[in-house]
């Protein structure tokens, strides 16, 4: 059949539709690069470790991605995650596993909702609001724990972090389900579509009848909720909760989202891309570890990668704008000549 497009073309189209070709490319580059050049990387225990780490990074990058899609960002994910997990931890060690998890998630969602209200209703810039929220949540959790760590969880709770479903580690399994749900929500529900609409053009969204305040508030609430979720996964894995464990999450989440092709301009990117980006960050950490690089360098490399990725993205945008203008001018001149 000559008129059917080839498999390559079709798969290219599908990839493009999902909007993750850049993310997938980056991931494959990272993955096969480290497979080729680093010996210990391909060992199965190491690979499982990488995936487990990637799952954790993905879980706290969700909030960052959704707020970035809304053309903001959430710097408070680490602090909110730690605060809600120390609150949850105190309830869990007193025996109420279910209640603890529930309260932890509610605390996270509430804090997110608070920043959402300030950002949507009172038009506080997202970086000022979430930065202050980070300090507030950080102060509260330090006050709550007095700098001590909380440990001694029930095994039924720790199963979330260290258990296995068949051969697959539990966190990976849970995050995969979360990923599927989020893909569905962002693609096929009213909330998901309005996130993209509000992020790409606030005024157009307003005029087409999308509840702009509500979408932003919900976006930040979801971000807080998933920060709490990530905190719970982490304490279940480590077996202890600390108020400073979320330090550095926001940088890692920004790196994961940016590598996954989510743009700071808003409305561009996908959650699948973020999943690949999170894997890239996990691989980066793993490589640095395997190469014996001092862990002090991690922060440096992370910052550098974010700067490089965002700058490249911005340069690309500028370049494309220039190209479009040149094309338009050429068209006009051709018309004039004709």
């Amino acid at each position: 059949m000559p008129d059917r497009p080839s498999i390559l073309e079709r798969s290219k189209k599908i990839l493009h539709q999902i909007g993750m070709n850049q993310a997938l490319f980056t991931f494959l580059l990272f993955f096969f690069g480290s497979l080729l050049f680093i010996d210990q990387f391909a060992i199965s225990t190491n690979l499982i470790n990488v995936f487990r780490q990637g799952a954790l990074i993905f879980s706290f990058s969700i909030g960052m991605t959704i707020t970035m899609l809304l053309s903001g960002l959430d710097l408070s994910i680490g602090a909110v995650g730690s605060l809600s997990s120390v609150v949850a931890a105190t309830l869990i060690i007193s025996g109420n596993v279910f209640l603890g998890v529930l309260v932890g998630l509610i605390v996270g969602a509430l804090l997110g909702l608070l920043s959402g209200i300030a950002i949507a209703r009172f038009s506080v810039p997202s970086f000022i609001m979430t930065f202050s929220m980070m300090k507030i949540a950080n102060g509260l959790s330090l006050e709550f724990t007095q700098g001590q760590s909380i440990y001694g969880f029930d095994n039924s709770f720790r199963f979330i972090g260290i258990g296995y479903v068949g051969p697959i580690p539990m966190p990976l399994f849970i995050n995969f389900i979360v990923l599927l749900i989020l893909v569905f929500v962002l693609k096929y529900t009213v909330f998901g579509r309005s996130v993209y609409a509000v992020g790409s053009n606030k005024n157009a969204a307003k005029f087409s009848g999308i509840s702009y305040h509500f979408t932003i508030m919900m976006g930040y609430m979801v971000s807080g909720l998933f920060s709490a979720f990530a905190g719970l996964l982490l304490i279940a894995r480590l077996g202890s909760a600390e108020s400073i464990m979320g330090e550095g999450w926001s940088r890692q989440a920004i790196a994961a989202s940016v590598l996954g092709g989510v743009s700071f301009a808003g409305g561009k990117g996908s959650i699948i891309g973020t999943a690949f980006g999170a894997m890239c960050v996990a691989i980066l950490y793993n490589i640095l570890n395997l190469l014996g690089v001092d862990s002090l360098w991690q922060e440096f490399f992370l910052g550098l990668i974010i700067l490089l990725a965002v700058s490249l993205d911005c340069i690309k945008t500028i370049w494309m704008k220039k190209r479009d203008t040149i094309r338009q001018l050429r068209k006009i001149s051709e018309e004039v000549v004709a």
Binding site: F301, L304, L307
Partner: peptide
């Protein structure tokens, strides 16, 4: 923010 990370690192 990432410049802060680089400087701290």
């Amino acid at each position: 923010f990432s410049m802060g990370g680089i400087a701290l690192g």
